[in-house]
Design a protein around this nucleic acid. Sequence first.
RNA 1: GCCGACGUAGCCCAACGGCAAGAGGCACUGGUCUUAGAAACCAGGUGAUGUGAGUUCAAAUCUCACCGUCGGUACCA
Length: 965
Amino acid sequence: MDEKYFPQKIERKWQRRWAENKTFETEADDSKPKFYALEMLPYPSGRLHMGHVRNYSIGDALAWYKRLQGFNVLHPIGWDSFGQPAEQAAIKKGVNPRDWTEDNIKQLREQFQRLGIGYDWRREIATHRPEYYKFDQWFFLKMLERGLAYKKMTKVNWCPHDQTTLSNEQASGGVCWRCGNPVEKKDLAQWFLRITAYAEELLSGMEEIEAGWAERVLTMQKNWIGKSEGAFVDFAVKDADENIRVFTTRIDTIYGANAIVVAAEHPIIEAHQAELSKKVLDKIEEIKREKAKPTDYGEEIEKDGIDTGLKAVNPFSGEELPVWIGNYVMMEYGTGAVMSVPAHDERDFEFARKFNLPIRQVISQKTHSSGENVQVMTSGADVQPLDANNKASGARAKASNADVSSSNADVPSDNPHVPSDNPHIPSEVARNSGDVSQSEAQVSENLSSTSQPASDNAPSSIEAATTDYGILINSGVWSGKRSQDAKREMVEFAEANDFGEAATTYRLRDWGISRQRFWGAPIPIVYCDKCGTVPEKYENLPVRLPDSAPFTGAGESPLARVPEFVDTTCPNCNEPARRETDTMDTFVDSSWYYFRYADAHNAAMPFDPKIINYWLPVDQYIGGVDHAVMHLLYTRFWTKVMRDIGLVKFDEPIEKLLTQGMVVGESFYSNSKSSYVPPDEVKIIRDAKGKVVEAKLRADNSPVKVAVEKMSKSKYNGVEPNDMIAIYGADAARIFALFAAPAENEMVWQETGIEGAVRFLQRVYRLVYRWRSALRAGGRWSVVSGQSEKPSQNAEARNLRRKTHQTIKRVTENFESYQFNTPVAALMELSNALGDFKVEPDKANDDELFAANEALQSLILMLAPYAPHFAEEMWENLTGAENGILQSGARFPVADETLAKADEIEIPIQVNGKLRSRVLAAPETAKEALEAAALADERVKQYTDGKQVVKIVVVPNRLVNIVVK
RNA sequence: GCCGACGUAGCCCAACGGCAAGAGGCACUGGUCUUAGAAACCAGGUGAUGUGAGUUCAAAUCUCACCGUCGGUACCA
């Protein structure tokens, strides 16, 4: 053993031994409990960055911990090697994307090995290789068979910078997920995967995994899926034999509808094109144009629209409503048409305000929520009961157009809207408005005795939309009902009368997977003039990518210019045909890669279901939160499809998910230079407490702005993992990556921090060095099991053993709750305790040697997940085991509760919640004894004498609180 | 705007509703060593637990409101 710690030497040595001993290679084995530790597969950019170090250090720590507990651990790695950077390199530098990628993989693999992450390298996969993407294509064909893949012409998200289409998930926020540029809309024929078929299950399946997934990730997915329950209602188009179907979640506000607003792309527009004025048609074109433009994130688009002149009839009231086109209505959601209820919807309100449409309140807020006598607050003023002939609607429209607010206030009501907990609506109420009015009159009369005018609460005009539930007013026979009841009953009414139905819509849309790129898996489709769109035969897979293609970067599929690829024969009729030239989204590759790890070289199938059902689901997945919606939603979908195909038996592929935070660094911005400057050009001035008060440029003392930002070259705040490993060693880098902050948090990379990690390792190294020969000479060579035959008599030894077992307990508990930073602190404490163990190794007695050996061995074993090379080396020096910790049969230490317990506990005594004294007691002292000891205490007596003891709270082992008066 | 998370020492962070707020690291200060510095070692805790109310014998911890930071989302009817 060297006197000093030389990380590079130790790390090289153990990386070699691990490879020789196949330490991390595993096979399915039913006799052992399994653990699948998985980190998101990296894109092989050629350079390892600190985010990688953190991600893979967490995963490896967990894998080591589980291995040391006797689990059969699968810990694989691979490469997400299709994708744009390779193609970009081809466009810019003319290199072959395949060579470029393979080269990068080689470099990155070497860096991973230098980090010493314990992977089973036999299972390594790369998604750009035909052996892998063959099964992307296989899955595509399976989905096609099941109707889960289809092609349609549609408006797709188009990134003008990357020159490719994007899925909705990749264009979230209106910007490209890769380059951050605003996304345009473009008409393109695209292949889609029908993820919406699983929308409900993707939502309900969350119950199964919510215990193991960060709540925010599930919330993000939930919001993205965007389930919305409501109703379809059909509005008949006047003078035409057709309906406009709207989707609404607030059918209870339907009497407040002032218009039907449809999307510019709505079919009704096309159908009536001939009847529309030029002005209307121009507006439609304008709206469509505007919609295709990229919009700034966060920018509010001004409402725009136009009255088409068409009329639709409200099936509930019989009221005739104008049909408008509105730029705020989306064809892709719901039915592409809405009923505009300005009083109770903010968007409709804004729209109505802008175009002076009438605003009618139909929901009133309750003033009393209890009992039968529900008081209704009614504006009274804006009531416009329809007469049997609908004359009123025309009159109202006119009045409203003049001045929305005053017209609401000025029209007197002759229709008292009465409170009611349950007005009976006859089920035979006819649909025509005359009957409705009649019933309403009846209801009003029946309940008029309980009527309570509430004019004091009446607003003189409507200032804003109120979207809360309340009591219906101005709603014919439905007036007086509560929103919740009305919603249900009105849907039933619509269903019974055949003009509507309950409906659920989702925000989630199908997953567009066509990409106009070369470097992806070809979509296995052939277009034949005779047979049409024909799937490639399974036996012809993979449809191989050609070696290269003309890369123009012009946004068209490079494969279209490769005749050898395009020209083929129809799998159906054998006549000449053309291949699909778009490739698949790379998220297809990553949707199932971790299934492939379990059976990485299967040539016939994506994987053998038997093997998969041993290793999967993944026990712990670790990756960035940026994939919360994209990758993690797609892979859940993929799993459900695989289940339905019969490949897997479970519904959810990932039991636990840890989303680690970003690694950031301190950056310095110089105002005088108007640029970022490297840290070594900056002088930091601190006050007496060490607080940074100022930062100056060394050169000219000009001020520098300090910030903590995502690492990047241009900001000079990036750190090269290679450099860190070269200077401090992989183990120190890994310890610091885990120790600096909880895994979910952002982590600030500081060089002083990693120095602290090295110091810690050096301390432990010195401890081992100091004790090593004494332990060997004393025959303490053997591995300690965690229990000693006899309790230690020596106080010093007993204290150390207590600390050891307390540490084991803490570290184990922390690992079990996936805290990786706190165990390091506990291990530092233990090493400090060993340092404070004031016994000379060569003068130590048996008890002391035993305690020191136990402490050191436990420390080393618990350190293995963080600093595996270091732990291996120390283990070898302590125990003589040359083939490594795992081969030696060592297990993670087990805490002995008895040893961990203190002999005596100080019990604080409070009087009225304030600490007044302490008493010493043995652990588990009975309540009564503690109470007696507390009351007998002299200092306590000072506070209790002459007072009445009201209550005594005794928490065994914790405290006594005496409440006096 | 809406949804969610988080606010503890100069900084990163600990703390089953229970001790006088502190485990660990960084920074800072002093000391040992050194020609000096660095490294290493030793010692030192610097605070309205964001603000305000509530629940409780007892609140950093639970509840509510507000403020601040971060993240997601944005006409989703």
